[in-house]
Nucleic acid binder design. Structure first.
Lengths: 198, 198
DNA sequence: GTCTATAACCAGATAGAC
DNA sequence: GTCTATCTGGTTATAGAC
């Protein structure tokens, strides 16, 4: 696909780096302009506001994440798919640490102006987990939520799996970045494997 | 223990409510003063700065959480302890939704001035999970980290369990708050039970 | 200890030349 | 399409009366 103009890209990259380090509200448009090597006016020519800039950034990020999960589970089912997705997610986060930190900090928020669109894409990413989980044969007997609920039991389970991975990744990237992705994957999959229960 | 003066408490309560709804940076000191029913000057008499105010709030929150986990596992070991802690954590978060939302949004951040002290207490909370996990007999064979690492394998696993619970809780509190705590606990424990693998 | 009033500052956004 | 210069509003924090 044709990359957008170099300026737009430079701005997004700069914004990502700064926001990963300082958070979104800790990042000023002046900071972004300096880091991107453009004038502040150019920011507002290319993006209508600070909110829109970061909305696009996060939407891109969640899109990448969804695509990664979809690829990881293609051709696999059930636990094998889940295992593959956890590994792929950890690898994506480690290759893109700035994005990982930004998303970890922002994906749980509910107070942002772009919260709605971010929530939609978050659900899209969770949906990638839902299908393999369904294939493992989750027992009925618990309320399934139905269409009038915000989330059903499968989505709750998917959220837990995703949360386990994300939190494992965060400990890793922030506090122990030298550790290998295999180590972290082993820990996360261990938590999900049921061996805690035996 | 003797509660601090009514004013300090009123300020902290007001700050918690507002921050849960709007995030910390979305909450102004004026907002807090109005909500608490005091003048802004009193805020700065009782807390030296906005940062200090919210630092104390977060620290109190993590303290409550650690205490809750400690109580939940007392007298239990291994998986039974873990199960009890997950339930207790979900109950705490549901009884204290403002705190839950605030902590979910802030505990992962790395850009706050109080990040260091928050991290220490977060590790303390995770440590409550570490002991029961150790009791389940995590196999050696993977690097255990040792004291020169920021986190060892057990801490990674604990982080995953904690992350699974927190993320499950968030879906629940934000998007489907009518659901019962039993439903959510069932989903989280299901994810950790290993039944996904069978 | 709490209030009112104000200082000092900073960030998001815009105007208009080039 | 990008720049410089500026405006405007809102926010943290302080001074000083009561």
């Amino acid at each position: 696909m044709p990359r957008e103009s170099g300026t737009k890209r430079a701005i997004l990259d700069a914004a990502l780096d700064l926001a990963a380090a300082n958070g979104i509200s800790g990042t000023t448009m002046d900071d972004v302009a300096v880091r991107a090597g453009v004038a502040k006016g150019s920011l507002y020519y290319n993006f209508s506001s600070k909110d829109k800039l970061f909305e696009q950034l996060l939407l891109e990020g969640v899109g990448t994440l969804t695509e990664c999960l979809r690829n990881a589970r293609s051709g696999l089912t059930g636990w094998q798919a889940i295992e593959s997705m956890v590994r792929a997610l950890l690898e994506l986060l480690s290759e893109n640490r700035a994005l990982a930190k930004l998303m970890a900090a922002e994906i749980l928020r509910t107070d942002r102006t772009w919260q709605h669109s971010l929530h939609l894409l978050r659900q899209e990413a969770l949906a990638e987990f839902v299908e393999p989980i369904r294939q493992t044969g989750v027992p009925s007997g618990l309320p399934d939520g139905g269409s009038d609920h915000g989330s059903d039991q499968l989505t709750l389970i998917a959220g837990s799996v995703f949360g386990a991975t994300l939190m494992g990744a965060l400990d890793w990237l922030v506090f122990d970045p030298e550790r290998s992705v295999e180590d972290v994957a082993a820990a996360v999959l261990y938590a999900l494997s049921g061996r805690l229960k035996s």
